[in-house]
């Protein structure tokens, strides 16, 4: 089976060449399709940087990153955008819904980015499945934190991506909301046969994953 994500000797550093800040050092790992992986580690260890690199939103200083066997290091912004559109859904800790779009419009955005037009019913159906049928035309400011994160997950899933990257998706939620949110994410990831890479501080959530990758000081432990 092909790896959905493949990191080969990936390093990331910031700052000057003389005195660089090394964030990641020689990271090697792969994630198979339909595999659910959690990344854990202390703050500042480089967990989020792995998600940033895998999404193509950050560029590795060294090494190779493949998404569905396609090398993404060195690609231009437009090509990276295309890979992201076709392969990846991202869930952020702070939800990041667009404030002047309704819940449905926020989800539709993802479809329209992928040139799938007039699929409002599809978006509404997914949101209803997420228990938001009464919030379809509400703006983010009119939704609770849990509801906002459901919309964010729906936005990531609607396009049926091959990979979901989630950066502490329950970080801003209480424990009850966290559990139901994770149930939802796991259920839909499995149902749609999608790989999930999730950064989390919560061991109980990490333990529900197929595999755990632990990072410390920019290296896999």
């Amino acid at each position: 089976m092909n790896a959905a994500i493949q990191f080969n000797n990936v390093s990331l550093s910031y700052g000057s060449k003389v005195d660089p800040v090394e964030v990641l050092k020689g990271i090697n790992f792969s994630v198979s399709s339909e595999e659910i992986v959690s990344i854990i580690g202390p703050s500042g260890s480089g967990k989020t940087s792995i998600i940033m690199l895998a999404s193509g939103l950050e560029t590795a200083t060294e090494g190779s990153i493949k998404i569905n066997s396609q090398e993404i290091v060195g690609l231009k912004e437009n090509n990276l955008s295309e890979i992201r559109r076709k392969n990846i859904g991202i869930v952020f800790q702070s939800f990041y819904l667009i404030p002047n779009l309704t819940a449905t419009e926020n989800v539709l955005l993802s479809l329209e980015a992928n040139q799938k037009y007039n699929q409002e019913e599809e978006a509404k159906k997914l949101l209803s499945e997420f228990g938001l049928s009464h919030r379809l035309d509400h703006l983010p400011s009119e939704l609770s934190g849990g509801e906002q994160q459901r919309v964010a997950i729906a936005r990531a899933l609607i396009n049926k991506p091959k990979i979901i990257l989630a950066d502490e998706p329950t970080g801003n939620l209480d424990s009850a909301n966290s559990q139901s949110m994770m149930d939802l994410l796991f259920e839909y990831t499995k149902k749609s046969k999608t790989s999930l890479v999730m950064v989390t501080h919560d061991n109980s959530i990490a333990e529900r994953c197929d595999r755990i990758i632990e990072i410390k000081d920019g290296q896999i432990v």
Partner: peptide
């Protein structure tokens, strides 16, 4: 933020 979200979804600059 909205622009960054759109970029993260796959819209180009």
């Amino acid at each position: 933020t909205s622009i960054a979200v759109k970029k993260s979804i796959g819209f180009s600059s």
